[in-house]
Structure formats: structure tokens, C-alpha cells
């Protein structure tokens, strides 16, 4: 590190000051406040100190436990499916023998351009009971009866998983493509000459070389899925309320939103749930870092 004069040091603070002031006001202060509020009970603006009363309430609140279960289900199923798909697409697109690579890459990336709200609305209309997706599946004889995508707790979860996968696979793929292009082709050439089969090349060269990017995208996807809101408040919503049917797609973020803005506000309890998300993000990121290091 260079040595700075006193003047340069002050200049450094001056450049960073506007951002730090704003972050203090709109991020650090709210985070501390919500931590403080999670020890408060009461409705509306009448708080009183409740110690760990909110944490106790969590363990007895069936809706919270349900939302937690749903969120973790989405996470455990959707993130691996998407990461694997994105990896497969990236490897395929990186192969010069694949025809139409530019078109394919653009097409698979295109979903990232839409807003979460717009694509949610599109999915809602495509997955209507007598909608285009059921029509296609019936026509191809994959199913014999229309699937009740929006009215069955199981299929509603499947629908949300399909939707998120559609929206984010191309996004993750771009990271892998960029990383693949940085791998020296001569490594593959040498492996091929040594007679290493394609599958072994994938698992012994590609995956280890992409370890850091895979870790990075997994952590990003975990954070994103733990905060899932837009989709479940728009796709599996009816009459202005999300998370349907029978709360089968209710997520932690949606529950926080409902507790704060739909019902009589319970700021303290809602803040406690938001800290559950913070702790989950912390724990899972830590676990993923450990896992990536050991490999």
C-alpha cells in the first residue's frame, strides 16, 4: 500500500463521504433500528420492550413456520436445478462445434431483461388452467388432465420454481461463460491427447476451474431466493393477495410484507422475521464457503 500524505488521506475520505453518509442513513441506521425493534412488541406505533417474546412467538406461529418451510423448499430445489442447467448451457455454448451459438446465447439470456413483475404476469396467463401450457402438454400427451397450476399447493410450488428458473438461468450462465472463456484451451487439449474422456474433463477440469464462480452465483442465488417476493405476490396471487393457494407459496418476505402493510402493522414481529432471513443468509453463505474450500 502506498503512503498517503495527510492531505491525500483527507481527500480519500472526501471522495467516499457522500456514499458513506447515505449508507449510514439508509442502510446501517435501519439495520440497527430493525435489530432494536425485534425486541419490541405491540401493534401500530405503540411499542414496548418484550425481550425475546418475538422469538418465542416465532416458534409457535404456524404461518411463520409454513413460510419458512416454503422458502427453504424453493431454495433447496430451485437453486441446484438452475445452477446445473446454467452450467450445462454454458459448457454447450462454449463448444465451437455447436451451431448458432450467438443466437442461442442471446435467446437464453433474454429473460434477464424482463422485470420480475412483467414476467410474473406473463407466467400467470400462460399457466391458466385452460391456458397455453396445459394445452401444449395435453396436445403432446404428456398429461391427460389439465394441471391446476394455481389452485393446487404442490403445482403452485412447481410453477414458482419453473418461473424463477426461466428468469435466472441465463443470468447465471453468463457468469460461467465468462469464466470458461478464461480457461486456457491448451489444458483441454493436453487432457484430450492424454485420452481423458469428455465426462472426466468436465468434472476434473471444468468444475474445479469454475469453483469460485459457482460459489459466487450460488451465494447470490441463495440470497435472492431467501428474499423471494415479486413472483409469489404476482403469479400465485388472486384478489390482490399473494402466496396462494392456502399459503402454499407464502415466503418469508411476503409474510413480512403482509405483517407490516396488509394487517395491523406488527413492526417488531416483522423485524424479527427479517432477522431470521439475515441469519439464514449468513449461515448458508458460510456453509457454502466452507464447502467450496474443502473441495
Amino acid at each position: 500500500m502506498q503512503t498517503l500524505t495527510r492531505r491525500e488521506n483527507l481527500t480519500g475520505w472526501a471522495f467516499t463521504a457522500p456514499a458513506l453518509a447515505l449508507l449510514g442513513l439508509f442502510m446501517i441506521y435501519p439495520i440497527l433500528w430493525s435489530l432494536y425493534m425485534s425486541f419490541m412488541t405491540g401493534k401500530g406505533m405503540n411499542f414496548k420492550f418484550g425481550g425475546f417474546a418475538n422469538v418465542e412467538r416465532l416458534t409457535k406461529d404456524p404461518i411463520f413456520l409454513h413460510a419458512l418451510g416454503n422458502t427453504l423448499t424453493f431454495l433447496a430445489i430451485q437453486v441446484p436445478i438452475m445452477i446445473i442447467l446454467a452450467l450445462v448451457f454454458a459448457v454447450a455454448l462454449n463448444n465451437p462445434r455447436l451451431r448458432g451459438r450467438a443466437v442461442l446465447r442471446t435467446a437464453i439470456f433474454l429473460p434477464c431483461v424482463t422485470s420480475l413483475v412483467v414476467y410474473s404476469v406473463l407466467f400467470k396467463s400462460m399457466f391458466a388452467e385452460d391456458g397455453v401450457v396445459n394445452d401444449a402438454l395435453l396436445f403432446l400427451h404428456i398429461i391427460s388432465d389439465p394441471i391446476p397450476w394455481m389452485n393446487d399447493p404442490f403445482w403452485a410450488k412447481v410453477l414458482i420454481i419453473l418461473a424463477i428458473t426461466w428468469r435466472w438461468t441465463g443470468y447465471n450462465m453468463v457468469f460461467y461463460l465468462a469464466a470458461l472463456q478464461n480457461i486456457d484451451p491448451s489444458i483441454y487439449e493436453a487432457a484430450r491427447i492424454d485420452g481423458v474422456p469428455a465426462r472426466a474433463r468436465f468434472f476434473k477440469i471444468t468444475i474445479p476451474m469454475l469453483r469460485h464462480v459457482i460459489l459466487f452465483t450460488t451465494v447470490l442465488s441463495t440470497i435472492g431466493t431467501l428474499q423471494l417476493f415479486d413472483e409469489v405476490n404476482n403469479i400465485t396471487a388472486s384478489q390482490g393477495q399473494g402466496g396462494r393457494p392456502a399459503d402454499a407459496t407464502l415466503t418469508l418476505s411476503l409474510y413480512i410484507y403482509n405483517l407490516t402493510f396488509r394487517f395491523m402493522p406488527s413492526f417488531g414481529y416483522a423485524a424479527t422475521i427479517s432477522w431470521v432471513i439475515v441469519i439464514l443468509v449468513g449461515l448458508l453463505s458460510w456453509a457454502q464457503f466452507r464447502l467450496a474450500r474443502e473441495k
Partner: peptide
């Protein structure tokens, strides 16, 4: 996550 800042 944003959820932790949204209410404050």
C-alpha cells in the same frame, strides 16, 4: 437482505 431495512 432488503427485508431487514424495509420496515425502518
Amino acid at each position: 437482505p432488503f427485508a431487514a431495512m424495509m420496515i425502518p
